[in-house]
Computed example of a mutant assay.
Amino acid sequence: MASAARAGEGTSAAVGGAGSGSWWDDYSETKFKQTFRMRRSTFNLICDMLKSELKDPEKKVAICLLRVATRENFANLAVKFGSSPESCRKRCVAVCDAIWKVMLPMYLSWPDIVDLTKNTADFHLISGIPHVVGSMHTIHVPLNMNAHRSNPSTSLAPAEVFLNRPSSKNIFTAHSTLLQGVVNPQGLFIDFAAGSPGSMSDDDVLVRSKLYEMVNTGIRDLRGMWIVGTSGCPLLDWLLTPYPRPRTLPQHTLNDKIFKIQEVAKEAFSRLKGRWSILQLIDVKPKELYLTLGVCCVLHNICEMNGDEIDPSLKFHLMDDELLPQIADLTSKSAKKARDKIAEYLASCT
């Protein structure tokens, strides 16, 4: 991600700007950011980078951004942009496809060794725990099943699979999909797994993820490094999780330090879900679900890397509903010993 372009660096100065005849041309910078959740320069950057995939991208990008930022339905978007609802939907999907192809490799990718080393140093400053390269968290993204039922062609059958998993903090019957992500110390996504049914546990999502597969097959080498996970994830040789029932001072100390790292991911998800409110109730076709979730993560990184701070009032309050790991026999014995050593070390430093 170090090579990703920033707004104003080698981009056209007036993409979608004066002369394009768009209704947002006369918006002040403040109103523009309120509408599209990013500054005009970042909007221009996205349009400029997608020119190779989209003809006249400004209107299409605007439709897509309004859709993910405000959850505006396609009927209302059609009125705003002088088009049909289906045309708006197709344009939104086209922009998401283009972002996935062009911008995802630049803005959301696994760090190289230089960036991994920097991550470990930054996380060490945050927590005192050595060799941490990422912080993992999982959120529910509510599904608007009524929208799918009213249009059988978009059905997410069987609906029961997407019922939220039961927990002490999640007592209402609802449908959702899951988004699991790993962030760096700055809250930028470096990996994500999206689209699993809300009935699945965190460890279920993990073991089905590309990250788990790549680490276990050696394609992604995390030897001597940690990703910090939640209590819903198993303790692995590369995944450090808190003690489920801490009893000793070292165990409590380590958990406190882990929670500091977890907070980085939770804050990132709070900004993600607040900026892109489509993640507060999503109603896309099943084949577009994974694409939409991933594009929101990419757009999050683009905004954060370009200094587009989110309005604090938009931040979304996350509700934890973590359960202990549901899959037996995943916990690593060597990781248990390593976690104990880290706990003893941190306790000795206090």
Rank of each mutant, 00 (worst) to 15 (best):
I63G: 01
D115L: 04
A193E: 12
I113K: 15
C88N: 04
V264Y: 00
N44V: 09
A147W: 15
A62N: 06
G21I: 10
M214F: 03
I190L: 11
K336G: 09
F189K: 03
K315A: 12
R39A: 09
I171W: 11
Y212V: 01
L179Q: 01
A18H: 15
V133R: 00
N151Q: 11
P158E: 10
M136E: 02
A94Q: 13
P197K: 05
S209H: 05
T120N: 09
N144Y: 13
I278S: 09
F81G: 04
V264G: 01
L188N: 06
T253D: 11
I227H: 02
A157D: 13
E53T: 13
L222P: 11
E86H: 13
K90M: 07
L293V: 01
A335F: 09
N144C: 15
C349K: 05
L163M: 13
P130E: 07
A62L: 00
P158M: 07
L293S: 06
T117Q: 12
A347K: 07
S199D: 06
R339K: 13
L143Q: 08
L324N: 10
P246G: 10
D191C: 04
A94I: 12
M136I: 08
D203S: 06
I310D: 06
L143C: 11
F189Q: 08
D256Y: 12
A7H: 10
I63H: 00
K118N: 15
P325H: 00
L77H: 02
Q186K: 10
A4F: 02
S87H: 07
K80N: 12
G16R: 00
P242S: 08
T230I: 06
V133E: 01
G274P: 07
P197G: 14
Y212G: 00
D97N: 15
M200S: 02
C297W: 07
F81P: 06
T120D: 12
D204V: 00
V15K: 08
N301Q: 05
A5C: 14
A194R: 03
V284M: 09
I219V: 14
V264I: 05
I219T: 13
I46H: 11
L143D: 05
V264A: 05
L330E: 02
V205D: 04
L249N: 14
G21D: 12
S313E: 13
I302Q: 02
A98T: 06
L254F: 05
E344F: 07
V95Y: 06
A347P: 05
L293C: 03
N151V: 08
L330Q: 06
I261T: 00
A4T: 09
E86Y: 14
P286T: 05
D204W: 08
L240D: 01
D237N: 10
K337M: 11
A157G: 11
F259N: 06
N301W: 01
R40T: 04
L108Y: 09
A268L: 08
M145R: 08
L314M: 11
F81W: 00
P286S: 07
